[in-house]
Amino acid sequence: MTPSLLYAFAGVALCSIGLFGFVRIRHLLRKLMAFNLIGSGVFLLMVGLAQRGGQPDPVPQALVLTGIVVAIAATALAVVLIRRYYHLSGQTTLAEPRAKRAKPPAPTANREGSPE
């Protein structure tokens, strides 16, 4: 049990916490954060597992660096999409397919006038 392996196991823990949050939490922003937690767990896992002989391996580190940049851009795009969805529907969660809505969702606080 080396210290670097500890990082890998911390990554495993982060992954499973993120998975729980991603499935259970309804709010879209929190879902996105949980998804990012899974991503961070994967990065930690890769970097932790790669330093086997005590020497850090540059190849997985470069891959993780690439992954971090892509994750930031994807998260920012997801935030833009979520804000757009909230603006158009007034909801912070995705609509349940089974739940039938008798009336359209209430207009949001920051919107003047009824959309219809």
């Binding site: 890998a8 196991f9 495993v12 992954c15 499973s16 916490i17 998975l19 729980f20 259970r24 597992l49």
Partner: peptide
């Protein structure tokens, strides 16, 4: 869900 996540973590930890 907790059981599924624990099983996932266990499997992943074993692999690691």
């Amino acid at each position: 869900m907790v059981a599924i996540c624990l099983a996932f973590a266990g499997g992943l930890a074993l692999t690691v």
